[in-house]
């Protein structure tokens, strides 16, 4: 078995249309911000290498999805096999905040992950660079309600970012990577690796014809 140095992590970014998913990703990967809004059509893929805890090499494969509903049919391929999911809202748009839990549910249904309660999610509230008066009123209270709700609460780390001014973007993604990596290491430690036991010998006498190739 080869010890590959880099771990590859699939990261999905979800959230309502216009909350800044693509901007966050562009800021994180390319350190760029554009004032123009272009709706993502279907999906976009970006890659970024980062180092965690000073020595762990991680490659993030970031799947930027379209928030618009008409592109949602891409479905399963998008969500399955994800290592971490980033739920985004816009701090000036209350609806996008309230939709977070639908996005989470949608993800869990489509991705069919084995332990939903352990799956790494983080929440990003974007656009904190805007004027206070444009922000959702009593945001922290509302946010608190959503994250600490006992029934299906989104009890995940929250980051407030500005893709425009590059505030907190890097650190948010670092936490994303860290959480996903932890989960990955946990899986490996649990011996989920079906490694080297070549005990699946075939029983020729029992299998008879089925062992016989059709040529």
């Amino acid at each position: 078995m080869s010890g590959r140095k880099k771990t590859l992590l699939k990261v999905i970014i979800l959230g309502d249309s216009g909350v800044g998913k693509t901007s966050l990703m562009q800021q994180f990967v390319n350190n760029k911000f554009s004032h123009q809004y272009k709706a993502t059509i279907g999906a976009d893929f970006l890659t970024k290498d980062i180092t965690i805890d000073g020595n762990k090499q991680v490659t993030l494969q970031i799947w930027d999805t379209a928030g618009q509903e008409r592109f949602q049919s891409l479905g399963v391929a998008f969500y399955r096999g994800a290592d971490c999911c980033v739920l985004c809202y816009d701090v000036t748009n209350e609806k996008s905040l309230n939709n977070l839990s639908s996005w989470k549910d949608e993800f869990l249904v489509q991705s069919n992950v084995s332990n939903p309660q352990d799956f790494p999610f983080i929440i990003i509230g974007n656009k904190i660079d805007v004027d206070e008066n444009k922000k959702i009123s009593s945001l922290s209270k509302k946010l608190n309600n959503i994250t600490n709700n006992q029934l299906g609460g989104l009890n995940y780390p929250v980051f407030e970012t500005s893709a425009k001014d590059a505030i907190n973007v890097e650190s948010a993604f670092e936490v994303v990577a860290k959480m996903a990596l932890q989960q990955e290491e946990l899986n490996d430690a649990n011996g989920n690796d079906v490694s080297d036991d070549y005990n699946d010998a075939i029983n020729i006498h029992l299998e008879g014809d089925s062992g016989n190739c059709a040529c």
């Binding site: 999906a43 893929f45 890659t47 290498d49 490659t59 494969q61 049919s73 891409l74 399963v76 391929a77």
Partner: peptide
């Protein structure tokens, strides 16, 4: 990896949307 990760994502998406639709 850097070069092909985008391709592999795209390929899965195309295949999956065909299957889906």
């Amino acid at each position: 990896d850097e070069l092909i990760i985008g391709f592999t994502g795209l390929i899965t998406t195309i295949i999956s949307s065909f299957q889906h639709q």
